[in-house]
Design a protein around this nucleic acid. Structure first.
Length: 288
DNA sequence: CACTTGACCTGTCCGC
DNA sequence: TGCGGACAGGTCAAGT
């Protein structure tokens, strides 16, 4: 699923919902989704309290009072959904999504001492959560190689352009999706920002001009900030920590809009394959 | 080293 | 209505 804006939306939701709660029990029904052994889970999760919820790139980190951290990657179809006191309550009819959990895609259930639950659901089982000493998290291979956060105030346009030099021979779309170049960009916001910057996704990195890099930097940040404001993008799988969908797709300009008019020039948007991914462009605004 | 492709999984949609 | 294949918002391990 989730790219930076969706993961950030989940982080914000979880932050307000689970910090301060103590864990009563953990059910891991697939080792693939949660590889730690039961002994480690018992020792460092049970009775521990959630102290913080952080994000780096597309990875979530739930810090525990035991000085361990649950590191979580949702990959394509992962969800973290909190079901609290409102289960069967006024705002949630008994057939609503959160009242149907756990379901067949539930991989991990964390129950808190107050009786509320956090579910990790993942239809395709690509996602994972791992329990790691908090101090070890920065030493994970992923953390060591991932690129800078694109929405940090300190991240400049010139740093952005500089990061791409290592991928000079590949397409701009493949480079944008490379997490070691810039953190958190996935298929939706790659397409949306390339459209905004009027750059064809197959253009080789080495042919992108400084002016184009500057436009791409600005568009990427604008699109991602808007997406966070709208609670992310939802297909049939993505939901936030409260089980609700995001509305960015109502604002998307090319992504999954093939056959519709480009909002800038009216040309019909087409879908193609770039870097092995479905890719949406306006063939008039974005030329090779 | 840089680059591309296939693999990991399950479910859904589309064409025959 | 059934079946095969392509495809899905992500990353790795392989291959060239």
């Amino acid at each position: 699923m989730p790219e930076l804006p969706e993961v950030e939306t989940v982080r914000r939701g979880l932050s307000s919902l689970i910090i301060g709660r103590a864990i009563r029990s953990v059910i891991q029904d697939t080792p693939k989704s949660f590889p730690n052994d039961a002994q480690t889970v018992t020792s460092f999760m049970l009775q521990a309290t959630i102290t913080d919820v952080r994000r780096r790139a597309k990875v979530l980190m739930i810090d525990l009072s035991s000085d361990y951290t649950l590191v979580i990657h949702l990959k394509m179809t992962g969800q973290l959904v909190y079901v609290g006191e409102t289960r069967f309550g006024a705002g949630h009819p008994s057939d609503s999504l959160v009242n149907q959990l756990p379901d067949k895609s539930t991989r991990v259930t964390i129950e808190f001492v107050d009786g509320t639950q956090l579910y990790f659901n993942d239809q395709r089982k690509f996602g994972w959560m791992k329990l790691i000493p908090t101090l070890e998290v920065p030493n994970m291979d992923f953390m060591k190689k991932v690129g800078p956060e694109p929405l940090e105030d300190s991240f400049t346009s010139s740093q952005f352009a500089e990061r791409f030099k290592r991928r000079a021979g590949t397409s701009i779309k493949a480079a944008l999706l490379d997490q070691s170049v810039v953190a958190g960009v996935g298929n939706i916001y790659a397409d949306e920002s390339l459209w905004g910057a009027k750059i064809h996704p197959k253009r080789l990195v080495k042919t992108i001009t400084p002016v184009e890099f500057r436009r791409l930097y600005t568009e990427l940040r604008t699109v991602m900030n808007l997406a966070i404001e709208k609670g992310g993008s939802s297909n049939h799988t993505y939901i936030n920590a409260e089980g609700k969908k995001g509305s960015y797709m109502d604002f998307a300009r090319v992504f999954r809009r093939e056959g519709l008019a480009c909002p800038r020039c009216g040309t019909t948007i087409i879908k193609m394959r770039v870097a092995g991914r479905g890719t949406h462009i306006c063939p008039h605004c974005q030329r090779l």
